[in-house]
Protein backbone atom coordinates (compact mmCIF):
# COMPACT_ATOMS: atom_id res chain seq x y z
CA UNK A 1 0.00 0.00 0.00
CA UNK A 2 2.74 2.41 0.89
CA UNK A 3 4.19 2.25 -2.62
CA UNK A 4 1.24 4.00 -4.15
CA UNK A 5 1.63 7.11 -2.02
CA UNK A 6 2.82 8.80 -5.19
CA UNK A 7 -0.73 8.66 -6.41
CA UNK A 8 -1.68 11.35 -3.92
CA UNK A 9 -2.06 14.54 -5.87
CA UNK A 10 -2.06 17.92 -4.12
CA UNK A 11 -4.11 20.76 -5.46
CA UNK A 12 -1.77 23.68 -6.18
CA UNK A 13 -4.43 25.85 -4.56
CA UNK A 14 -3.57 24.18 -1.25
CA UNK A 15 -0.06 25.42 -1.71
CA UNK A 16 -1.16 28.94 -2.58
CA UNK A 17 -3.97 29.34 -0.08
CA UNK A 18 -2.91 27.20 2.85
CA UNK A 19 0.81 26.44 2.92
CA UNK A 20 2.07 29.93 2.10
CA UNK A 21 -0.46 31.80 4.25
CA UNK A 22 0.32 29.71 7.31
CA UNK A 23 4.03 30.31 6.89
CA UNK A 24 3.57 33.99 6.17
CA UNK A 25 1.21 34.54 9.09
CA UNK A 26 3.63 32.86 11.45
CA UNK A 27 6.55 34.93 10.27
CA UNK A 28 4.57 38.14 10.54
CA UNK A 29 3.26 37.26 13.97
CA UNK A 30 6.82 36.57 15.09
CA UNK A 31 7.97 39.97 13.89
CA UNK A 32 4.97 41.66 15.43
CA UNK A 33 5.67 39.89 18.68
CA UNK A 34 9.23 41.14 18.62
CA UNK A 35 8.10 44.74 18.41
CA UNK A 36 5.31 44.35 20.95
CA UNK A 37 7.77 42.89 23.43
CA UNK A 38 10.07 45.85 22.84
CA UNK A 39 7.16 48.18 23.52
CA UNK A 40 6.17 46.34 26.66
CA UNK A 41 9.62 46.21 28.12
CA UNK A 42 9.98 48.58 30.98
CA UNK A 43 13.46 49.99 31.53
CA UNK A 44 15.40 48.09 34.19
CA UNK A 45 14.68 49.39 37.64
CA UNK A 46 17.37 51.54 39.14
CA UNK A 47 18.57 50.24 42.45
CA UNK A 48 19.06 52.77 45.21
CA UNK A 49 22.58 53.28 46.50
CA UNK A 50 22.00 51.37 49.69
CA UNK A 51 20.77 48.32 47.80
CA UNK A 52 23.81 48.26 45.54
CA UNK A 53 26.07 48.62 48.54
CA UNK A 54 24.35 45.70 50.20
CA UNK A 55 24.65 43.55 47.09
CA UNK A 56 28.31 44.28 46.67
CA UNK A 57 29.39 43.97 50.27
CA UNK A 58 30.04 40.29 49.78
CA UNK A 59 32.34 41.00 46.84
CA UNK A 60 34.65 43.01 49.07
CA UNK A 61 35.39 40.15 51.38
CA UNK A 62 35.57 37.71 48.48
CA UNK A 63 38.26 39.83 46.83
CA UNK A 64 40.16 39.96 50.07
CA UNK A 65 39.85 36.21 50.56
CA UNK A 66 40.85 35.11 47.05
CA UNK A 67 44.43 36.20 47.49
CA UNK A 68 44.76 35.59 51.22
CA UNK A 69 47.17 32.64 50.93
CA UNK A 70 49.52 34.80 48.89
CA UNK A 71 48.25 38.22 49.70
CA UNK A 72 49.73 41.28 47.97
CA UNK A 73 49.32 43.40 51.08
CA UNK A 74 51.27 43.31 54.36
CA UNK A 75 49.87 41.78 57.48
CA UNK A 76 48.83 44.89 59.38
CA UNK A 77 46.90 46.17 56.35
CA UNK A 78 45.27 42.81 55.76
CA UNK A 79 44.26 42.45 59.39
CA UNK A 80 42.74 45.90 59.55
CA UNK A 81 40.66 45.38 56.41
CA UNK A 82 39.61 41.91 57.42
CA UNK A 83 38.63 42.88 60.93
CA UNK A 84 36.81 45.95 59.75
CA UNK A 85 34.75 43.84 57.38
CA UNK A 86 34.06 41.24 60.04
CA UNK A 87 32.80 43.86 62.41
CA UNK A 88 30.68 45.49 59.74
CA UNK A 89 29.17 42.15 58.74
CA UNK A 90 28.47 41.31 62.35
CA UNK A 91 26.86 44.65 63.04
CA UNK A 92 24.96 44.70 59.76
CA UNK A 93 26.42 48.02 58.61
CA UNK A 94 26.05 47.00 54.99
CA UNK A 95 22.41 46.01 55.18
CA UNK A 96 20.08 48.09 53.06
CA UNK A 97 17.73 48.85 55.93
CA UNK A 98 20.47 49.43 58.45
CA UNK A 99 21.44 47.14 61.32
CA UNK A 100 18.67 44.69 62.20
CA UNK A 101 16.64 45.29 65.32
CA UNK A 102 16.80 42.69 68.01
CA UNK A 103 13.08 41.99 68.16
CA UNK A 104 12.42 41.97 64.42
CA UNK A 105 10.93 38.78 63.04
CA UNK A 106 13.53 36.69 61.24
CA UNK A 107 11.31 35.26 58.52
CA UNK A 108 12.34 36.16 54.98
CA UNK A 109 10.06 38.73 53.39
CA UNK A 110 7.26 37.47 51.23
CA UNK A 111 8.27 38.11 47.60
CA UNK A 112 4.69 38.91 46.65
CA UNK A 113 4.58 41.82 49.05
CA UNK A 114 7.66 43.48 47.54
CA UNK A 115 6.49 45.81 44.75
CA UNK A 116 9.83 45.55 42.93
CA UNK A 117 9.64 41.78 42.74
CA UNK A 118 6.04 42.04 41.59
CA UNK A 119 7.06 44.29 38.72
CA UNK A 120 9.61 41.78 37.56
CA UNK A 121 7.04 39.03 37.67
CA UNK A 122 4.50 41.09 35.80
CA UNK A 123 7.01 41.81 33.04
CA UNK A 124 7.55 38.10 32.65
CA UNK A 125 3.83 37.47 32.50
CA UNK A 126 3.34 40.17 29.91
CA UNK A 127 5.83 38.67 27.48
CA UNK A 128 4.29 35.29 28.13
CA UNK A 129 0.90 36.60 27.18
CA UNK A 130 2.22 38.23 24.03
CA UNK A 131 3.54 34.86 23.02
CA UNK A 132 0.67 32.65 24.07
CA UNK A 133 -2.28 34.59 22.72
CA UNK A 134 -1.28 34.80 19.04
CA UNK A 135 -0.03 31.25 19.00
CA UNK A 136 -3.33 30.03 20.41
CA UNK A 137 -5.22 32.01 17.80
CA UNK A 138 -3.10 30.70 14.93
CA UNK A 139 -3.44 27.16 16.12
CA UNK A 140 -7.18 27.54 16.49
CA UNK A 141 -7.35 29.05 13.00
CA UNK A 142 -5.43 26.16 11.48
CA UNK A 143 -7.38 23.58 13.40
CA UNK A 144 -10.68 25.11 12.39
CA UNK A 145 -10.12 25.70 8.70
CA UNK A 146 -7.43 23.31 7.61
CA UNK A 147 -7.86 20.30 9.84
CA UNK A 148 -6.74 17.14 8.08
CA UNK A 149 -5.10 18.99 5.19
CA UNK A 150 -1.98 17.54 3.67
CA UNK A 151 0.16 20.48 2.70
CA UNK A 152 3.51 19.40 1.41
CA UNK A 153 5.63 16.43 0.53
CA UNK A 154 9.12 16.36 1.84
CA UNK A 155 11.69 15.67 -0.85
CA UNK A 156 13.46 12.98 1.16
CA UNK A 157 12.35 9.68 2.71
CA UNK A 158 11.86 9.33 6.45
CA UNK A 159 11.31 6.44 8.82
CA UNK A 160 7.98 5.66 10.39
CA UNK A 161 9.09 7.22 13.67
CA UNK A 162 8.45 10.66 12.24
CA UNK A 163 4.82 9.89 11.57
CA UNK A 164 3.49 11.39 14.78
CA UNK A 165 5.59 14.49 14.21
CA UNK A 166 4.75 15.12 10.58
CA UNK A 167 1.19 13.90 10.32
CA UNK A 168 -0.45 15.23 13.40
CA UNK A 169 -4.16 15.53 12.93
CA UNK A 170 -4.39 12.86 10.25
CA UNK A 171 -5.15 9.42 11.57
CA UNK A 172 -3.99 7.23 8.69
CA UNK A 173 -1.73 4.32 9.42
CA UNK A 174 -0.62 3.77 5.83
CA UNK A 175 0.21 7.16 4.33
CA UNK A 176 3.85 7.78 3.44
CA UNK A 177 5.65 9.68 6.20
CA UNK A 178 6.85 12.27 3.71
CA UNK A 179 3.48 13.98 3.61
CA UNK A 180 3.14 16.77 6.11
CA UNK A 181 -0.17 17.73 7.68
CA UNK A 182 -1.25 21.31 8.35
CA UNK A 183 -0.94 21.08 12.13
CA UNK A 184 2.51 19.55 11.82
CA UNK A 185 3.54 22.29 9.43
CA UNK A 186 2.48 24.74 12.10
CA UNK A 187 4.71 23.05 14.65
CA UNK A 188 7.61 22.82 12.26
CA UNK A 189 7.36 26.54 11.71
CA UNK A 190 6.89 27.19 15.39
CA UNK A 191 10.18 25.59 16.26
CA UNK A 192 12.05 26.22 13.04
CA UNK A 193 11.61 29.90 12.27
CA UNK A 194 14.18 31.14 14.76
CA UNK A 195 16.94 31.16 12.16
CA UNK A 196 14.84 33.31 9.86
CA UNK A 197 14.01 35.76 12.64
CA UNK A 198 17.64 36.06 13.48
CA UNK A 199 18.28 36.97 9.88
CA UNK A 200 15.52 39.57 9.78
CA UNK A 201 15.65 41.04 13.27
CA UNK A 202 19.16 40.42 14.46
CA UNK A 203 20.66 38.26 17.18
CA UNK A 204 18.60 38.76 20.31
CA UNK A 205 15.12 39.18 19.04
CA UNK A 206 12.03 38.39 21.01
CA UNK A 207 10.23 36.84 18.08
CA UNK A 208 11.08 33.23 18.69
CA UNK A 209 8.24 31.69 20.60
CA UNK A 210 9.75 28.29 21.16
CA UNK A 211 12.43 29.74 23.40
CA UNK A 212 9.83 30.84 25.90
CA UNK A 213 8.25 27.43 25.77
CA UNK A 214 11.47 25.90 26.96
CA UNK A 215 11.63 27.97 30.12
CA UNK A 216 8.32 29.47 31.07
CA UNK A 217 8.51 32.35 33.52
CA UNK A 218 12.20 32.75 32.92
CA UNK A 219 11.50 35.08 30.02
CA UNK A 220 12.30 38.69 30.72
CA UNK A 221 13.24 38.10 34.33
CA UNK A 222 16.94 37.63 34.77
CA UNK A 223 16.88 36.11 38.20
CA UNK A 224 14.14 34.17 39.84
CA UNK A 225 12.00 36.83 41.46
CA UNK A 226 10.71 34.58 44.19
CA UNK A 227 14.13 34.20 45.77
CA UNK A 228 14.63 37.28 47.87
CA UNK A 229 18.17 37.12 49.20
CA UNK A 230 18.52 37.33 52.92
CA UNK A 231 21.71 39.35 53.07
CA UNK A 232 21.96 39.44 56.82
CA UNK A 233 22.40 35.67 56.83
CA UNK A 234 24.79 35.70 53.88
CA UNK A 235 26.97 38.32 55.51
CA UNK A 236 27.07 36.43 58.79
CA UNK A 237 28.22 33.35 56.91
CA UNK A 238 30.83 35.38 55.08
CA UNK A 239 32.24 36.43 58.43
CA UNK A 240 33.28 32.84 59.14
CA UNK A 241 34.94 32.63 55.75
CA UNK A 242 36.89 35.77 56.55
CA UNK A 243 38.16 34.27 59.79
CA UNK A 244 39.23 31.16 57.94
CA UNK A 245 41.04 33.21 55.31
CA UNK A 246 42.77 35.20 58.02
CA UNK A 247 44.16 31.96 59.38
CA UNK A 248 45.54 31.05 55.96
CA UNK A 249 46.98 34.51 55.38
CA UNK A 250 50.53 34.93 54.24
CA UNK A 251 52.16 37.95 52.65
CA UNK A 252 53.66 37.51 49.22
CA UNK A 253 56.63 39.53 50.47
CA UNK A 254 57.29 37.27 53.43
CA UNK A 255 60.42 35.60 52.07
CA UNK A 256 60.85 37.67 48.97
CA UNK A 257 64.49 38.44 49.95
CA UNK A 258 65.53 34.81 49.62
CA UNK A 259 63.66 34.45 46.35
CA UNK A 260 65.26 37.46 44.75
CA UNK A 261 68.74 36.71 46.06
CA UNK A 262 68.57 33.13 44.87
CA UNK A 263 67.47 34.21 41.47
CA UNK A 264 70.46 36.51 41.20
CA UNK A 265 72.79 33.83 42.48
CA UNK A 266 73.69 35.61 45.72
CA UNK A 267 72.39 32.82 47.89
CA UNK A 268 72.77 29.09 47.25
CA UNK A 269 69.54 27.57 45.93
CA UNK A 270 67.59 25.76 48.61
Amino acid sequence: MSNNAVSLYLDPQIRDWVLFPITLVMILVGILRHYVVILLQSPPKKLPRAAIREQRALVRSQILRTTSTNSPIPESFYKSISQNLSQAFEAGTYLKDGPPKADAPSTPPNPLSDPNAMDGMMAGMKTQMVMMVPQMIIMGWINFFFQGFVLIKLPFPLTLGFKSMLQRGIETPDMDVRWVSSLSWYFLNFFGLNGLYRLILGGDNAADASRDMASPFAAGVPQAPGQAQDYSKLLKAEKDNLELAEGLYSWVGKDVEQRVLRRYGKLPPS
Binding site: P74, E257, K266
Partner: peptide, 16 residues
Protein backbone atom coordinates in the same frame (compact mmCIF):
# COMPACT_ATOMS: atom_id res chain seq x y z
CA UNK B 1 54.86 51.78 61.71
CA UNK B 2 53.33 48.72 60.05
CA UNK B 3 55.45 46.33 62.14
CA UNK B 4 57.13 44.90 59.09
CA UNK B 5 60.19 42.91 60.00
CA UNK B 6 63.47 44.45 58.86
CA UNK B 7 64.52 42.54 55.72
CA UNK B 8 67.40 40.10 55.98
CA UNK B 9 70.65 40.33 54.00
CA UNK B 10 70.52 44.11 53.70
CA UNK B 11 74.25 44.15 52.94
CA UNK B 12 73.77 41.70 50.06
CA UNK B 13 70.94 43.76 48.62
CA UNK B 14 73.03 46.89 48.80
CA UNK B 15 75.68 45.15 46.68
CA UNK B 16 73.16 43.59 44.34
Amino acid sequence: PSQTAVPEHVQLFDEL
